[in-house]
């Protein structure tokens, strides 16, 4: 059975567009509950990017629905400009190459 009902899909679409940068993570930016989530928080803080953090451990329906919405079964999940950007390793790699900063700046200006 699919966790992603049309209603939930609608909610998620609004959520990923609620800020230019949205991080779905385990825990919060101040209390990350997983090393991978923490890594992405530290990267965003390093880039001085304003972002919304959503703790998926607090909402099982959101957690399951988002996996299908993103076609991505693990967390953290980073959204930039309403688009799925990647998990921890893709974000870390893009941070190193400067691509992440580019994407963020593009989203901030749009």
């Amino acid at each position: 059975a699919s966790a992603l009902t049309p209603q939930l899909k609608d909610t998620l679409e609004k959520l990923v567009n609620s800020e230019k940068v949205v991080l779905f993570m385990k825990g919060t930016r101040d209390f990350p509950m997983c090393g991978f989530s923490n890594t992405v928080v530290q990267i965003l803080k390093n880039l001085n990017v304003p972002f919304e953090d959503v703790n998926i451990l607090e909402n099982e329906m959101l957690r399951q629905g988002l996996k299908e919405y993103s076609n991505w079964p693990t967390f953290p999940q980073l959204y930039i400009g309403g688009e799925f950007f990647g998990g921890c390793d893709i974000t870390l790699e893009a941070f190193k190459t400067g691509e992440l900063q580019e994407e963020v700046e593009k989203a901030m200006c749009s």
């Binding site: 076609n71 991505w72 079964p73 693990t74 799925f84 950007f85 990647g86 998990g87 893709i90």
Partner: peptide, 8 residues
């Protein structure tokens, strides 16, 4: 991203 999606 898509490569990892395919594996996932």
């Amino acid at each position: 991203v898509n490569r990892q999606r395919m594996v996932y």
